[in-house]
Computed example of a mutant assay.
Amino acid sequence: MQFVSRAQWGARPSRYKLTTIPDTRGVKVHYEGSYVPPALANPDAHAQCAGRVRAIQAQHLADDEEDYSDIAYSAMVCPHGYVYEGRGAHRQTGANGTSALNRAHYAVCAMVGSSGLTEPTAAQLDGILGAIEWLRDEGNAGDEIKGHRDGHPTACPGGPLYAWIQRGAPRPGGTPGPAPSERYEPYPGAAWFKAAPRSPIVTAMGRRLVAEGCGRYRSGPGPQWTDADRQSYAAWQRKQGHSGTAADGWPGPSTWAALRVPKV
């Protein structure tokens, strides 16, 4: 990945403090949604790309109606395949449409438009995949790759990019895109928890519960499964919409998958 940091492209400081997030379900892909000159894809036009990112940041900072904290995107990708750091990893995006959508996914914007340059280049598709892998490695992004229009009424990211996403976001040449992440602990089974295990998996689970606002610990969390873990997990089950015996604090496969406990 050809990465361009905020300092390298000349980013202005954020207007407000950005919201920190522990992880996301994945990444949503965007386009600029306006005219992008086809000549921007010419090999000798790359010198214009950093200036384009600066202009987009300035436009967002000047938007009093949206009141953006910064450039809305987590990253931008130019036609030459360079990834420009936007808000970056572990920072809530402002691009997906609502606060809930912004918490759920990072946002990667390709420098293509609704007219002019509408087809992403092969280098650009590689760059988008590089940005996704970076957000997985550095920002704990989940496996989902979606378009902005998934969950929000918009044409973004345009027909060509959305068709690519629907094909599974393959690399140019037809090779598969990023494989599903194996960074999360598989469900250990109900009997494992009921045996009161002592394991670093319990600690990792507890930390995720605390991050989700469901911690019911007086101290810890720690490696020994205790009633505090069960109470915390019951709070997570209720947060997922469960009640009664479905929120008894014993982990089940669906709520465990939604919790996304990191591998230990």
Rank of each mutant, 00 (worst) to 15 (best):
residue 213 G to I: 14
residue 172 P to N: 01
residue 215 G to A: 09
residue 229 D to C: 04
residue 220 G to H: 09
residue 153 P to Y: 14
residue 229 D to V: 00
residue 220 G to F: 04
residue 232 S to E: 02
residue 129 L to D: 02
residue 176 P to C: 09
residue 181 S to N: 05
residue 184 Y to K: 08
residue 208 R to L: 10
residue 202 V to C: 12
residue 142 G to N: 07
residue 221 P to T: 04
residue 146 K to Q: 14
residue 195 A to E: 12
residue 173 G to Y: 03
residue 238 R to H: 01
residue 188 P to L: 12
residue 211 A to P: 04
residue 237 Q to V: 04
residue 204 A to F: 09
residue 140 N to G: 01
residue 167 R to G: 00
residue 215 G to C: 02
residue 148 H to R: 13
residue 164 W to I: 04
residue 185 E to M: 11
residue 216 R to L: 10
residue 178 P to G: 13
residue 197 P to V: 12
residue 178 P to S: 10
residue 130 G to D: 15
residue 197 P to Y: 08
residue 210 V to A: 06
residue 133 E to N: 04
residue 166 Q to H: 02
residue 147 G to T: 08
residue 191 A to N: 05
residue 205 M to K: 11
residue 182 E to V: 03
residue 147 G to W: 06
residue 174 G to L: 10
residue 206 G to A: 07
residue 224 Q to T: 15
residue 148 H to G: 03
residue 221 P to S: 05
residue 173 G to E: 07
residue 194 K to A: 14
residue 238 R to P: 01
residue 162 Y to A: 03
residue 248 D to R: 01
residue 243 S to W: 06
residue 171 R to T: 03
residue 129 L to N: 06
residue 194 K to W: 06
residue 130 G to L: 10
residue 199 S to Q: 12
residue 248 D to Y: 01
residue 203 T to C: 09
residue 205 M to F: 12
residue 135 L to M: 13
residue 189 G to T: 09
